[in-house]
């Protein structure tokens, strides 16, 4: 009962790294073919930048920094305050897109095709996660450019910038894994981004737009204990050169927890049998 031999052209044995690289290339090629998505990632935070800084900022700035007078000084202070938040929102936006993309793969036949091929199973989702992290980085550069163009002048040094990029990449990977799982969990492409939308709200219920000590009791408790607050505080600290160590540890810990949980959830959903 010996086998029909495998074709001589295909090299034997699994090659997970090659497969992940191939899937990453596919994800990036899709991004190039459909640049609207990357632009869309920047559009939301960009509108917020203009609205919150250049319309509301004159008043808001006086509320977030002691001793700042409303008007131009307020706008400058608020630009400093929310640019880190907008960077985080850009990353969250990227993660929302991963959910849609994963749901599209699952709804079309291509994910089933990949699952019938002798490839590293993890490469299918890893390619999406990494691809959208690269897209998020591109969107982050565009957004920072816009912030600088409107007067943003961060004080971070070289080490500080490395830390900023490192934390944003870590956050992106973690949220992308979580959102890939959410996308696979959804019953359709249309509903794939519903769960990730909740993530877009979290920076508002944290220290993203106003200091948490101005919030009422229960909201304040939630704001102090949710993952986005330490992430935003860490970025704010790094970009102004005044970080607190507790926030850094909490931020990294949250990212690791979210990333590992998202990865395990995504893996179990990917392995789940789908009715044909």
């Amino acid at each position: 009962m010996s086998a029909v031999t495998a074709p001589a052209t295909a090299s034997a044995g699994p090659r997970p790294l090659a497969d992940v690289a191939t899937m990453l290339r596919r994800s990036l090629l899709r991004a190039v073919r459909y640049p609207g998505l990357t632009v869309f990632l920047v559009a939301g935070p960009l509108v917020m930048l203009l609205l919150f800084v250049h319309v509301f900022g004159g008043a808001f700035g006086a509320g977030v920094a002691p001793g700042v007078t409303p008007g131009a000084e307020g706008r400058a202070a608020y630009l400093d305050y929310i640019t880190p938040t907008l960077l985080v929102l850009t990353v969250v936006g990227g993660a929302t897109s991963v959910a849609t993309s994963a749901a599209m793969d699952a709804a079309g036949g291509i994910m089933a095709r990949f699952r019938t091929m002798a490839i590293a199973p993890g490469s299918v989702l890893s390619g999406q996660v990494l691809g959208f992290t690269v897209q998020a980085l591109a969107a982050l550069v565009l957004l920072l450019g816009a912030a600088v163009a409107t007067g943003y002048r961060p004080d971070a040094g070289v080490a500080g910038w490395f830390a900023v990029v490192g934390l944003l990449v870590l956050l992106s990977l973690a949220l992308n894994w979580l959102c890939v799982a959410m996308g696979l969990h959804a019953r359709s492409v249309e509903t794939a981004s519903n769960l990730p939308m909740i993530l877009l709200l979290l920076p508002f219920l944290g220290s993203g737009f106003v200091p948490v000590d101005t919030m009422p009791g229960a909201v304040r408790w939630f704001a102090e204990h949710q993952p986005f607050t330490p992430v935003i505080e860490t970025l704010r600290g790094l970009l102004t050169g005044t970080g607190t160590e507790t926030a850094v540890v909490q931020a990294v810990a949250w990212c690791l927890v979210i990333g590992v949980a998202g990865y395990l959830w995504a893996r179990s959903l990917f392995r789940r049998e789908r009715r044909l």
Binding site: A3, T9, A18, T22, L29, G109, I110, A112
Partner: peptide, 29 residues
């Protein structure tokens, strides 16, 4: 050992025909 063409067309619509086939070639190493 197998190749499968399922009932739902399993192609990447954003890519070209050539790119779809090269994707498969890369996954077959």
């Amino acid at each position: 050992a197998i190749g499968v063409t399922g009932q739902i067309t399993a192609v990447d619509e954003l890519l070209t025909g050539t790119e779809n086939l090269r994707l498969m070639a890369a996954l077959h190493h």
